[in-house]
Each structure stands twice: as C-alpha cells, then as structure tokens.
Amino acid sequence: MNTADFEFLASILKQRSGLVLAPEKAYLLESRLMPVARKFGFAGLPELIVTVRKERPEELLRDITEAMTTNESLFFRDMKPFDQFRNLVVPKLVESRQSTRRIRIWSAAASSGQEPYSIAIILMEMQSLLAGWDVEITATDISVEMLNRARSGLYTQFEVQRGLPIATLVKYFKQVGEKWRLDAGVRSMVKFKEFNLLDDPAALGRFDIVFCRNVLIYFDQQTKAEVLARIAKAMPGDGVLYLGGAETVLGITDRFVPITGHRGMYGIAGGEPALKSA
C-alpha cells in the first residue's frame, strides 16, 4: 500500500473512530481490510480504495471502521481490576447507595463481550449482597458486528481459556459443538448498545463505575482528553473509572485522579471517590 492510500484510510479512521493508525501498523490495514474487500466484491485493496475515494459509500466506510477497531478481548483481563471491583468497589457502593439501591456500570469498549460478561459473572456471584438492588450493566462498542457477537454469548475454546477459571466455565457455560455459550441469565444482565466514544454519552445516563480499558491507547492525546472529559461528565463525584494497565490520565486530563495503591483505577477530581487511596 502506498503512502497516499495509507494516509487516506488512516484519516478516515481517525475521523470516524478517533483511532490513530501509526505508519508501522500499515500491515493491519492489509490484513484486516482484505475480508472487507472480498465481502464487497473487490479484487483487492486498490479497488476498494478507489471506490472509497470516489463514492464514499456509507456501508463500506462503516465496515472498514469496524474491521480496524476490533480489538482482542479477554475474560477477567489482568484479574486484579476485577478482584478490586468484587472486593472493594461494589461493597463500597452498596454502602453509599442504600437510598437508591441502584448501581450503573458502563463497559465502554465492550468488543466481543468478555469484559461486561466478566462483570456480570462477578455480580451473579454477589447475589446475596445485591438482593433487591437494581444493577445495570451497559456495554457499548462502535462495531455492530462485535455487538452481535457479544450478544450471542458464544465463544471459541481458545477464547474461554483466556482468563476464565475452569470452575466458572463449567458453572456458567454450555458446550455447543466446538464452542461454549454463556448462560442466558448472565447474558440478560448486560444491555448492549452501539456507541462511538467520539460522541457524547449523555443519552446513556450516569454511571457509578466505568470500564474504559485498553481503548484510549489507540487515540491521540487530544481525543483521549475529550473522551475522558465526556466520561467524567457522566459520572457522580464518587464514581470509579477503570483504565487499562498501560493507560493513565496523568498529563492528559485533570478531570480524573489516580486512586493511589489501586493501579488502573481513577476517581473524579475534587470528588469523594467510592474507594479511598490505599
């Protein structure tokens, strides 16, 4: 792929999803867009690019964006954030939300569903503490295809082995041929919605806990700051934000502050975090 074509496709991705594609990732365009080219009947990427330049067909632009924004997802990724969620954050919110008995959680880049379903499994295990509570998990992603995959709750053997303890697999999944399907009760706890992180999340409502892990790394500094500012507006003063292990708010925004001693967790600046620094 020549530089002009790479820059053209990269600019479309930036505009539509915020994703910044570095030149050394040009190989990703080729590997991920070939299936899109085939789907639309093009002989190869050059023909696809010509059509995009001339006609900018919405359906094709959408599929290109989806193909490039699909990221790997794991159950209970990095484990520790989920342990903290189970052992510290939820119990603390149960204390502070006694009057409303309502907790809203947002998985902001849900991909194929492993993150929101990990959250749902934990909450399922905490049923005795949460009896009579209204706990909502909203899972969003830019990719309709990924959301449909996530809704199906169907995972390959490889996917269920990455992060999911075997006892949890046995308890909450059924084997369907070569794949494993998550229990309908757990699936029903998660509401999936199409959402672009470049848009205003106000319509989604307010969230006590936001998981936005391993997605900011694909954005430039300004986009990161804008996304984080919008997320902050959607959270109460004692809300908790989870970012990925390689991500931070430092030097990007002053809307969030790290919760000391709890790597990857952030509170609202000037707020009263549900979880105190350790």
Partner: peptide, 30 residues
Amino acid sequence: NDLQHIQDALAAGANEYIMKPFDSEIIQTK
C-alpha cells in the same frame, strides 16, 4: 475437551484445566 471430562477432573481434585491446543498465554493465565 468435553464438559464431562472437565467435571470429572475437577471432582478428582484438579485445580485447573487446559484444553489442547494451548499457547504460552493460556499456560501463564492458568
């Protein structure tokens, strides 16, 4: 890699279970 074998292994006292094929990431996780 069927459910019955996994349940039998857990009942016999296995701590975890990997279904082949595996890779280093799966071993590390388990």
